[in-house]
Design a protein around this nucleic acid. Structure first.
Lengths: 184, 184
DNA sequence: GACTGTAGCGGACACGTGTCCACTTATCCA
DNA sequence: TGGATAAGTGGACACGTGTCCGCTACAGTC
């Protein structure tokens, strides 16, 4: 398991790209123009795409911190609350992040999808699985759903416009949560 | 309410565009390249965009037939089944259409969204509203959801890849449906 | 049938995405 | 230290989207 040894300049370029992306994102989610980011970072298009093959990869990196926090929150919530409530609070947290920076949503859903395609659950998948499993063990969450199901359902958030967010995002989360619970 | 009198050539161009789009779509959903459609229809780019300002508008027109059928199905289902089952069957039907031609999904969701933005419910919104209202009247569907909520939730279908469709599309529909029902 | 105002046309253009590949240079090892 | 080598670079290019605007020819009028 020797580290593949990355060249120093590559590392620095990568950092500069992320920095430039963050700056662009600060000006609005749709301001993330890959060619502009490359230029801003003083790097060729090819270099950008080498480091981040897809836009989602770049987003995932920019919001890594947030996603990590979200992942870390799952077990903590489970310690302090019954499973269904832990799941509800985790959802709520996700919506909180996503409201301010929509990119987080892309990072989460795309990240999870890629991990899954790559064979593993990935950190996000694991977090959700843990939440579900706890509820399934005690019979409060329906047994026939998995992490991917939840991630897919949550995807509805990405269709919400800015004005629709406030009235619908949280509300629909409760609908989804009810769908995930077992019927008494 | 006099019809604004459309020029004959405009009507014909419009028809040719739709025809070309249908042909392109037959070769795969992602084969719908607007510039190619315009060329194929023997029409300039400008003409295409004049008739169909957005890709969704074009999709909506191509799948108009299917969407109309879907809309017409709602009251029929309500006649023959209790509200919740009618809704379930309507969902099922939607998934059926969408499986073969994903474009229908875009047509439905985008169409509904535009109608809403334009102030009215639009035909799709009306159909869903009818289904919901029936269930809400008898207390089997939660009172705090509207047609737009349902359309948004259904949006998850658009994130499903070809291989994921089979195992998840219908299954998740039951989860959503459970979320929409009142808890006993 | 010629005249004309305008609805409608069409294609050039600006922009963003993503790919490709000849070249450069950081790193390793003798 | 200096030469080999492959990791890494960058920017030209092909493509699709959507806009803009000067021109065309259809549809009424005389």
């Amino acid at each position: 398991m020797t580290a593949p040894r990355r060249r120093a300049d590559a590392t620095e370029n990568r950092a500069r790209i992320i920095e430039a992306a963050r700056a662009a994102l600060a000006a609005g989610p749709q301001e993330l123009k890959l060619n502009a980011v490359a230029r801003q970072a003083g790097v060729g298009q090819g270099t950008l795409y080498r480091h981040f093959p897809t836009r989602e990869d770049l987003l995932a990196e920019v919001y890594r911190q947030d996603v990590d926090e979200l992942v870390a929150a799952a077990p903590q919530l489970l310690e302090r609350h019954p499973p269904v409530e832990a799941l509800a609070r985790w959802f709520d947290r996700l919506v909180g992040y996503a409201r301010v920076k929509r990119g987080v949503l892309t990072a989460v859903t795309a990240g999870a999808a890629q991990d899954l395609a790559a064979g593993s659950h990935g950190p996000i998948g694991d977090a959700v699985t843990a939440l579900l499993a706890a509820g399934q063990a005690e019979g409060t969450i329906r047994p026939d759903v998995d992490a991917r199901d939840v991630i897919v359902l949550i995807g509805y958030l990405s269709h919400l416009s800015e004005q629709e967010w406030e009235p619908r995002a949280r509300h629909l989360l409760t609908v989804v949560l009810d769908g995930l619970r077992t019927r008494p």
